[in-house]
Design a protein around this nucleic acid. Sequence first.
DNA 1: GCTCGAAAATGAACATTGTTCAAGACGAAT
DNA 2: ATTCGTCTTGAACAATGTTCATTTTCGAGC
Lengths: 206, 206
Amino acid sequence: MNIVQDESRRDRKKLQRRALLIEIARRSIATKGLRSLKVRDVSEAAGCSIGSVYNEFGDFDGLILTVNRETVQALTARLKAVPADDPLRQLHGLADAYLGFATEHANLLRSLFEHRMEDDRPFPEDILAMVMDAFALMHAPLVRLLPDRDPHDVALLSRMMFSAVHGIISLGLEERMVAVPPEQLRERLAQFVDTHLAGLGVTRGA
Amino acid sequence: MNIVQDESRRDRKKLQRRALLIEIARRSIATKGLRSLKVRDVSEAAGCSIGSVYNEFGDFDGLILTVNRETVQALTARLKAVPADDPLRQLHGLADAYLGFATEHANLLRSLFEHRMEDDRPFPEDILAMVMDAFALMHAPLVRLLPDRDPHDVALLSRMMFSAVHGIISLGLEERMVAVPPEQLRERLAQFVDTHLAGLGVTRGA
DNA sequence: GCTCGAAAATGAACATTGTTCAAGACGAAT
DNA sequence: ATTCGTCTTGAACAATGTTCATTTTCGAGC
């Protein structure tokens, strides 16, 4: 067997365990929240030593950030799966997809937005960029709905609209402070999007 | 000296130190973030023992929650100081006041919204109620602007509008993920409120 | 197949930090 | 001054992130 095969075999095992560790951490965050995540719990559940977690992710933040990275990727995939045929339907679809993801993965999304680096270490650029990309997904449909507006203006509008949706959902799903009752959230969110679009001069069916 | 004076003298000293501990914790959170807050740092800065912090607040969460309680009180005071003469101006004032508070006390506001109780202990009801009250402050002016709408509907609208403003501001001020550039935030926020009001059928000067 | 060496894995020891509690200090009433 | 209850103290403990010397693993070269 040549070098490549040897290395790939070793790597395969390594990657397999890495994936296992990530999966365990993700499940833990998803079910018990970020604050309950412990290095020892993860290593024991994976059947390896504490040190191995450190070999793989550098430190505890590294593991968390890896999970968060995959969370934003999953979110983006879900958002990008929204049909882009009709811009108005797409905007509603994006808001609804975000709500769906937030409902199903509340703790994972919270981990993404609430996790703080220790000391003053910088937040990873790539995650930042991915979140920004996700929040820019309302841009394309808004451009189609507002062809006469300054594109730069629409870019800001779209991020603001997504931020607003994010705020409504994240507070609405917060069990402790129900700004909007969860069972009505879906309907109300659609209403919000419509209202805002109307304010922007977009009329239904126009 | 009678009992009342004795007790009040003792209480005064106790309250004084309690206030000191809270002030130290608040400054620490405000400058270095919630994650950097340590019991030992607080007790040392206050010149008392660790145990005294526990006597006063029960546990570490107790101290944090006390700071958060005062944060939401300060926020509410600021929001309630917005003139209520003209409903449209009041709505803009509320959004602007929230932005101002969030700008000046970013870490304190983050502490309020991002802090999680350990295990599954319930979030204090009183803080919850105070946040809800703050988020309901857009209700009164919206009722005046939308007299024909179902009041229950307006109640939801107002909390949704405030949640949206919260989302725009909290993500806009997040240095790591600038959804909306901070220097434009003020202007854009006003634009957002106007747009949404227009969507609700409120016309300027009507 | 054996040996060697680099890479990985290990987990005990350590560092940090929240928490407890037995002992002592303090102060008010008598 | 004595007594008694309360407050304070800080050493000890517990939980948890982190390090690193040692051991193990596994493939490469012979």
